[in-house]
Design a protein around this nucleic acid. Structure first.
Lengths: 146, 146
DNA sequence: GGCAGAGTATCAAAGCTTTGATGGTCGTCA
DNA sequence: TGACGACCATCAAAGCTTTGATACTCTGCC
């Protein structure tokens, strides 16, 4: 329409993310996980007993999305959910041994991808990319209230 | 685990894309559309009569995803799907007047976002960002066969 | 003519995600 | 003690997406 597709920087960002997602997805699938599941387990492994709401914030998704994700993880025996001793509104989530094992398998493969990415840039380039992406986000949100 | 989260460049790309998606989603919702629907209609407006499969390739999604998307668009009367006169395996998809109208509304708001992004960078910076993102994709795919 | 291969459309199963709406739990403050 | 606000978990409805499988159509080649 009123703006050529090849001028839209958003498309480049989207494609980069899509490529990354596809690669990670195929990497963690070997452990029987999806990318969101992997992200949740990874965060959980550093914070045992975390609430679903906190997990959702950490993974930048809604609590509803996290609830659904944890439900399947629970059904598969990768995590356990037990009521908080004091605060009964909270369900503490923890990795099971199976969950830890799956995460380990997935993480090795996922880290290999991030390692490749990191190695493809010099430290200066990495900083440049981060900085440009940060400004990208600011620009997107800048006029959000319009 | 074996790699600090703040060293993972993928996270920056993901957050940038997520921010963009959220902004576009909210912009396009005013026209009653979702981002994927907007993308499909936009591509369709430049290529009337396109097949669902071609549309899927253009939007970089699977034919199944596009079929589902077109089904709801069709049910809402934003597109029409008619059999190709000669090649009967093809359903030609076209915008209806309502579809054109919705696209116009959505596009104005979506372009405003891309415009803001574009304006936030100098031409050199834009080129740098594109180039870094291209290398990012190469790095991700580089060892895909591992 | 007839078969193989490529392209197209679509059903089905699983999962993720969002918005919207409930209902339970806890702490605080009047 | 009781109301209010903050938080947590979850149901429901809609949509998007992927992988896997099925079926139909056209083209090219034998």
């Amino acid at each position: 329409m009123s703006m050529p597709a090849d001028e839209r920087l958003g498309l480049d960002v989207k494609r980069a993310e899509q490529t990354l997602l596809a690669a990670k997805s195929s990497a963690v699938r070997a452990a029987g996980l999806t990318v969101p599941q992997y992200a949740a387990l990874l965060l959980l492994s550093d914070n045992p007993g975390m609430s679903a709401a906190a997990l959702a914030r950490g993974c930048m998704v809604t609590p509803q999305a996290m609830t659904a994700l944890l439900k399947t993880l629970d059904e598969r025996g990768l995590v356990t959910r037990t009521p908080h001793p004091w605060h009964r509104a909270i369900l503490e989530t923890r990795l099971t041994p199976e969950g830890t094992k799956a995460l380990g398998t997935a993480d090795r493969r996922a880290v290999a991808i991030e390692r490749r990415i990191s190695d493809a840039f010099t430290p200066e380039e990495r900083e440049t990319l981060r900085s440009l992406l940060a400004r990208f986000r600011e620009a997107v949100e800048g006029g959000g209230a319009s």
